[in-house]
Every structure is written in structure tokens, then in C-alpha cells.
Design a protein around this nucleic acid. Sequence first.
DNA 1: CAATTCCTTTACAAAATCTTTATAACGCAA
DNA 2: TTGCGTTATAAAGATTTTGTAAAGGAATTG
Lengths: 225, 225
Amino acid sequence: MNKAEILIIDDEAQIRKLLQINLESNGYKVIQASTGNEGLVLAASHPPDLILLDIGLPDKSGHEILKELREWYNKPVLILSVQDTEADIVSALDNGATDYLTKPFRTGELLARIRSAIRRSQNTENDSTITCGDLEIDLIARIVKLKGEAIKLTATEYNLLALFAKNEGKVLTHQYLLKEIWGYSYQTETQYLRVFVGTLRKKIEENPNNPQRITTESGVGYRFQ
Amino acid sequence: MNKAEILIIDDEAQIRKLLQINLESNGYKVIQASTGNEGLVLAASHPPDLILLDIGLPDKSGHEILKELREWYNKPVLILSVQDTEADIVSALDNGATDYLTKPFRTGELLARIRSAIRRSQNTENDSTITCGDLEIDLIARIVKLKGEAIKLTATEYNLLALFAKNEGKVLTHQYLLKEIWGYSYQTETQYLRVFVGTLRKKIEENPNNPQRITTESGVGYRFQ
DNA sequence: CAATTCCTTTACAAAATCTTTATAACGCAA
DNA sequence: TTGCGTTATAAAGATTTTGTAAAGGAATTG
């Protein structure tokens, strides 16, 4: 993955700064929110690869934020907290937190736990390259080859194709695709999908008028084979 | 899931006992090993759903055990250790540990982290397919196969068939079917059902004039077998 | 800051699906 | 047999969904 994006939701500017410096120097792209609601909006409009969530937020408890996130967000959410009561930890983990670290944390450990969480979340059948007939997708290098020839895809086209490839054979609903590629708040923009599936077909199908790889499931979504 | 199995690899009998009692009272099945090699053998001969691994083992370091395990075992491995140096934690996590807890640990937290790890590992492996004779319905991939051949169904046809399959053998009333597929306000549109049961029969019945799979219960509804 | 690429949006044609109508067939009881 | 309620099938019409092109904006790049 090319620069995983991490969203920090924390009200303390100092901590955000500290995290930002550490994460960016380790090759992550960082987005920040100082309140829970701001964090939810940011996450919905552009889903990050991982979220660092503080429990002690001014506007809304982190537990609530976590619950709301988990209604649609299924990538890792790591909790950072000064609280270390067992009840807090258990509640967060049972509500879908991926991990729980108490402040002050050790940066090396935090980074290791982030690596671990991201590795696992990408581990959905992810052997770096996926091959489907004469189409090869290198998920590490982000290169797509058709009959050995590299194809030029835009960022969105690539993301869409990679998502299809990781779910070969399954029907992916419009909602799901939009949520994964554009974000939670784009669930109704099915026209985006039509446009991008169209351009993808032009690039990877033998005959775009009779697509074999990306087929339409009318009223439901698309399927990649 | 039917009683998840947990393998404990730890040389201290007291800790094993403590873990055993706690885990068993929470519905897990427990297997124990007091040395690293014994643990590897047990894991290989009967792979558990999760492994609790102590780092300070007499025969082999837990780090080594972890590496050997990870060559083939990809379910959760939680590390328990008296060591809490950052280097230890980072090394374990980077070698594929799912989580790392330092002794003494809090049982509630440990149980929550176990639940969390198991939940996540199960999320990636669900293929619920219903099989009725030579008809297969994959509810995740949304694929229907008859004698191994995929059949093309429209969204409504598929929904109807899936609903039948989930209620195999039962008579489903017109009202119920209409309510489930079209919605509450369509309960009187029984003609819809006739049309769609008709098209379904054409696609999945050997002889649509003498249906065996979807049979008519006159005046009541339909039954799927 | 100009050029290019990519994304978003709009418009319209084409295809697929659903709904409705019409008509025939079936089972059952009088 | 006839009549009635129910079911089956075909096919026309209506509606929804999809595909494609293209214009205008936004973002990126040199």
C-alpha cells in the first residue's frame, strides 16, 4: 500500500503533533481532528486506513465515536487513553476497537501495533499479486499488467480494480463499493461507479461492449471474475 | 462457533491453571503445553482457534516459537510475558503476534482481547452456501449454481430464491413472501408471485410444467424443497 | 501560472427489469 | 358438465437501471 492514511482524533494539540511527526517520518499520511464529530465527518468523507482515537474527547465520549464508526467502518481503530481501568478497556475492545494503549505510550510500541493492525487488515487474501487470466495486479507496487503489458490506471480506477480483485467472484453492491472507495457519505453516488466501471472496462476488457471480467448485476452491483 | 479451542503454551503450572479456569468458565475449550516444542506439536496435530504463548519458555524462546508457528498458522497468537521492554514487544508484533500482554495481566482484559482476536479472525472466513440437491446458493457471493453451472437471476428472482432456500421445507404464505420481498404494502399483489415463481421455475426446475423444487400449496402459498 | 490530468456532474440513449393486462388451464364441488 | 376460485404463462407497456459521451471544475505537475 502506498502511504497508508491515518486519522488522529485527539483534542490535545501536543499529542497530535507528536503523533504526526512520528507517523509521517514512518511514511504514513496523517489527517487530524480535534473533536469527535470532526473526526466522524473526516472519516466518512474520506476513509482512512486506520484511526487513532482518544477516549477523552470534549464533545463526545470516544466510546460513542467508536460505536458510530463501527456501524460502517471496518478498518483498524486503535484507542489511546489516559484511562486504564479494566472496564474501559473491555468495553472498547468489545465494541470493536482493534487495540487499546494507555497514555503515556511508547512510540516504538505504538508504531509496531499500527503496523500489526494494518498488516492484518490487509491480509484478506493478499499475496502481493493477484492474477486473473492474463490480468495481473501487483498490490504492493500498484501496477496492473494485461498480457504482460503495464496499463496506466488513475488512482480511483486502480483502487476500484484492486477492491474487485480482492473479492473475486463475489457480487459487490453499489453501496459497498462506494463506501470503500469514496467513503461512507458517498453511498448514493452510483453514477460515479458507472463512469469508473466504464473506463476500467475500456482498459481491461477484450471487448468493452460485452464485458467478461466486470459483469453487471442489475439492481445490485458488479462482479469481477 | 462451537466452543473455540485455545492452546496455552506456558511453563508455569499456576498460570496455566489460572488461565484454564478462566477460559473454561467462559466457554472455551482449553489445551495445554508446558514447553515450546510440546506446544508446536500440539498446535500442528490439532490446530486451535487461538494460541496464548508465553515468551519465557525453558526450551526455546517464545520469539522462535512464534516464528515457527507463523510459517503455517494464521489464526491469532497472543503473547503473554513478564518482559515488557519495548524491543520485545515490537519484535513480537512484527513477527506476527496478534497482541502482547505483560504479566501480571488482568483477566477481564485478557478475555476481552481474546474475544476481539477471535472475532476478527472469524470475520474473514464466512462462506454460507445452501445446497439442495444439485442446486447451490452462495449467499455471500450471490451465486446460484445448478449442476455446477452458474445461473443468471435478476435481483428479485434471487431474493425470492434465497428466501425460499432459507426456509426449506416450510410453506411460505403469499402474504409473507410479498411482505419480505416487495414490502408491507404489497401483501395483496399475489400476481407478482405467480410471475416470478414462474420465471424461477423455468430457470431451476428440470421440467417447469411439473415443478419439484417450488411446489404450489393452493390457496396458501409455495414450498421449496 | 499554465498545462495537463483526473474527477465530478449533466444529459440522453440503450438495456434490463418490473408491472400490468389478457387469456388459458387447472382442480374442485354442485 | 358447468361454474367458480385459483394458478400459470405470455407478452405488451411502463419504469428503473445502466452505459457512454462530454462539458466544466478541481487538483496536480512542471
